[in-house]
Write a protein that binds this DNA or RNA. Sequence first.
DNA 1: GTCTATACAGTGATAGAC
DNA 2: GTCTATCACTGTATAGAC
Lengths: 191, 191
Amino acid sequence: MIDHNADSAALVAQIADVFRECGFEGASLSRITERTGLGKGSLYHFFPGGKDAMAAAVLTQVEAWFHRHIFQPLARDNAPDALDGMWRAVDAYFLSGQRICLMGAFALDGTRDRFGHAIGVYFHHWISALQQALQRAGVAVPAAGELAEDTVAGIQGALTLARAMNDTDLFIRGTRRLRARLMLAIPFHHP
Amino acid sequence: MIDHNADSAALVAQIADVFRECGFEGASLSRITERTGLGKGSLYHFFPGGKDAMAAAVLTQVEAWFHRHIFQPLARDNAPDALDGMWRAVDAYFLSGQRICLMGAFALDGTRDRFGHAIGVYFHHWISALQQALQRAGVAVPAAGELAEDTVAGIQGALTLARAMNDTDLFIRGTRRLRARLMLAIPFHHP
DNA sequence: GTCTATACAGTGATAGAC
DNA sequence: GTCTATCACTGTATAGAC
């Protein structure tokens, strides 16, 4: 029996990689055809809305992944474990800095005007979930919000810098510092 | 008398804005023609190398601006003034978060492969100059390097987040936190 | 579902008149 | 220097055979 959902998810994941490597404008249908092994006819069969629909599906998949592996655990699990899990998931997802954040990349150029809502929701969910976890861990309310913003922004910056300087160790060092800063802010949790 | 350098600089600045708004792939010659008021013939007269040459000229201009207004003062002036000047220049250049960093944007997609050297040099110069200023201000050597990395990455992250969430106040808050962190690291300079 | 063929606008780039 | 005309090519998208 064929798992259509898994097939579809794998297809969207392949397309996502093309967008990550080339950007929205640079991701031509011929490149997507080449990567996925599907002809244009098949692609338009799955995505009647064309390239915009492909990008929308990609962003939806990204949001779903982060919801499941990061946002939801942050809002549910006890705080120290949830934070540990976030850093593990971040490192795994971004391949220790070798993979960029599609939401961040799309936010920078004119692509944002097409997908601004999905991009805004993604970052809002992340910051909000992280802030909740920090509050449950005992961080004061105003500090928790600022710290959550600072951390999510810091991850984006570390991804940009790692790619700009072609040095994944920059990402590893950056996230280590961000993580240490979170730990220091949590009461009775200074290692 | 006509100042050709000034004219040329203004032209490159106009092209830079198109690249910032549309990205490298999205910045079509027709858009550049429209923005600058020059026909394709004139553009190719100034840039025989075409679009790549235009982007290269833009990156050179950006590097020159930062060299003059940020890197050089950081390496020359006494540290507290130089740091103050950096934060003023950063806020002015990025229009308090309304303008993105072209070097960071180009770093994220396939454009990096074309201009990787210029992008890498830019961030190296920035981090290195900031590190020097911090050391002169009394920050220990290993901490100064990490702090410089962290600050430059944080600025990139704040720019990304501000645009992603369409809220320039995110950039202002982010840079304020980064600045405060620098000040705290400098001995005898805790306000 | 997947393919090929095709439509047609837009791309970067060049040539040459002025 | 600036323009218009034009080039070859690639872009997204569609239609229809199988």
